[in-house]
């Protein structure tokens, strides 16, 4: 569904992505892990042309999104929901207004229907009680959940999650993991999740990929990933106290 073809991305004088190729299948939860600053967010941004590759092509279905423009780009982007790392809510709108924004601006739904959908999305992320508050008045974790509500309110086919659970308490983090699984299973949402949280990655991912040095050093199903011989992966797992044994015991 999303295919990277020999993507090179040069930023600030170095190749952040260096000949990266992979494919994400429809209906899959694809998890990308990796140390800070390796280009996970940059990878996600290529999927919706917030960045353009220095060379190579990003395909969405049969269309190249990295070269799309105008109407075609708008239509392709319309298939995506995007949760930004910092939430990216508009400061002068309340949480509810932020979530309603894409519906108000881009659809012809009436007010009542919009209100209903907004409530539904906010209840999914357990934030209905804060609907009338402004982003500056709520915590970082709540902002992130509000950003998530906005990403899914249009019911997109594909949702890109940039660190959906970082900065959340463990209980809320698991709730968000379950929400991602629910959207995937029950609504068939193809999901790309960037995270540092290995526990979550191995639980929800259908495939997990490790980004290092501009490429995936490992792409595998969770069980195989946890058993990987690749030194970067082992280091990453050990740092979060996940060993082969305790992963399989679960």
């Amino acid at each position: 569904m999303i295919r990277f073809e020999h993507i090179v991305k040069r930023l600030a004088g170095r190749n952040v992505l260096d000949d990266l190729s992979f494919e994400i299948h429809p209906g899959e939860i694809f998890v990308i892990v990796g140390p800070s600053g390796t280009g996970k967010s940059v990878t996600l941004k290529h999927m919706v042309q917030l960045l353009r590759p220095t060379s190579g092509t990003v395909w969405v279905g049969k269309e190249s999104i990295s070269t799309a423009e105008g109407q075609a780009l708008e239509r392709l982007r319309g298939r995506f929901g995007y949760l930004f790392q910092g939430g990216a809510l508009l400061g002068w709108l309340t949480v509810a207004q932020n979530v309603a924004l894409p519906l108000q601006q881009k659809t012809s739904l009436d007010e009542a229907e919009i209100a209903r959908r907004v409530q539904e999305a906010l209840e999914m992320v357990d934030l209905w009680h804060a609907a009338e508050q402004y982003p500056a008045e709520i915590s970082g974790g709540m902002q992130k959940r509000a950003g998530l509500a906005r990403a899914i309110v249009q019911r997109p086919e594909i949702v890109l999650y940039d660190e959906p659970t970082s900065g959340l308490d463990p209980v809320t983090a698991r709730t968000i993991d379950r929400l991602i699984q629910h959207l995937n299973r029950d609504l068939g949402v193809t999901s790309v999740v960037v995270t540092h949280d290995m526990q979550g990655a191995l639980t929800i991912g259908h495939r997990v990929a490790m980004l290092h040095g501009g490429r995936f050093v490992e792409v595998a199903a969770p069980a195989a990933f946890a058993a990987s011989r690749c030194p970067e992966v082992q280091q990453f797992l050990e740092a979060q106290h996940i060993t082969r044994e305790n992963f399989f015991r679960k």
């Binding site: 941004k45 919706v48 917030l50 708008e74 982007r77 319309g78 995506f80 929901g81 995007y82 930004f84 790392q85 910092g86 990216a88 809510l89 508009l90 924004l101 894409p102 601006q105 881009k106 950003g147 906005r150 249009q154």
Partner: peptide, 21 residues
Amino acid sequence: TMKVNDEIAALEIMSINPVRF
């Protein structure tokens, strides 16, 4: 500030034209 907080990017994803908006 909106630019560096990805808010402009968020508008673009939602296909809300930042110039018009």
